[in-house]
């Protein structure tokens, strides 16, 4: 029974995407991952509009101070079990915005991150792989 549940979780990661100050580069690559060439839906990934429906939180950007409380709030709104994927170099380390007065990052200081997808921006394939790795590690 538990096996079926965990398999279902791996097979249907619903994504909520949150931009925490990204330059749009990662965001458009995330959206590009849903389009016909990469088609993340074949793995069950669906981009949902409400954090309540989501399983995987994808975060991009260096975490600005304005977005910080919202990131925490969105993270808390996602029902358990959940996985967090940090996409892009900004989300991982804050670069090149490190040192700015309005950057609170890196992201894993605020919320636990399961998978880091490096790149500026990472390719859609890498993002899909990051999601799949995250759900396998977290729900498997």
């Amino acid at each position: 029974m538990w096996k079926i549940a965990s398999r279902s979780r791996i097979k249907s990661p619903w994504i909520f995407h949150l931009n925490t100050g990204s330059c749009n580069g990662c965001d458009i690559e995330i959206v590009a991952a849903l389009t016909p060439r990469y088609d993340a839906e074949r793995l069950g990934c669906v981009l949902v509009g409400s954090p309540r429906h989501a399983d995987v939180l994808i975060l991009t950007g260096p975490l600005t101070s304005q977005m910080m409380p919202r990131v925490v709030r969105v993270y808390e709104q996602i029902p358990e079990p959940k996985a967090v994927v940090a996409v892009g170099s900004c989300a991982i380390s804050g670069a090149p915005f490190l040192g700015s007065y309005s950057i609170e990052g890196p992201l894993d200081r605020i919320i636990p991150v399961d998978v880091y997808v490096a790149g500026c921006p990472p390719r859609p394939e890498a993002i899909i792989r990051g999601i799949v790795t995250a759900v396998k590690r977290k729900f498997g």
Partner: peptide, 11 residues
């Protein structure tokens, strides 16, 4: 506005 303000001019 201002949610993704990163202070680029300052940097």
């Amino acid at each position: 506005l201002g949610h993704v303000h990163r202070g680029i001019e300052f940097l």
